[in-house]
């Protein structure tokens, strides 16, 4: 069941519209020409990684930690902050202690 679903999902090849949708999700503006060029490129790569669908992964857990290790928790102590100059030092536009961006209408 699972393998069949994986394989069928992976067989889908992507078209120009999908490329544009991905670019928009990734917030990378692309011209029509660039998007067109990406269609075969991405299909090539995706077609190639698609071979993973043939691996029998029944009962296999997805990897979570490459080297067995569990999450450490730190103490609830204020050890940082009050470094506004450092935080804003590289800002393309900083005003009155804020980062400035084009006005957002919510």
């Amino acid at each position: 069941m699972e393998r069949a679903r994986n394989a069928s999902a992976a067989r889908m090849s992507i078209d120009l519209q999908t490329v544009k949708k991905i670019a928009s999700l990734a917030r990378i503006s692309v011209t029509d020409g660039e998007a067109q060029a990406l269609v075969p490129e991405l299909n090539n790569i995706l077609g190639w990684v698609e071979q993973l669908g043939e691996v029998d992964v029944a009962g296999v857990e997805p990897m979570t930690a490459v080297i067995p290790n569990t999450l450490r928790l730190r103490d609830d102590v204020v050890t940082d902050g009050n470094v506004r100059e450092k935080v804003l030092a590289n800002a393309p536009q900083a005003e009155q202690g804020f980062f400035a961006v084009p006005k957002v209408i919510e």
Binding site: A9, V49, V55, V60, P62, M63
Partner: peptide, 11 residues
Amino acid sequence: AYYTQAQKVRT
């Protein structure tokens, strides 16, 4: 289909 499958193959 892609990411989870890849992490399983990684295992």
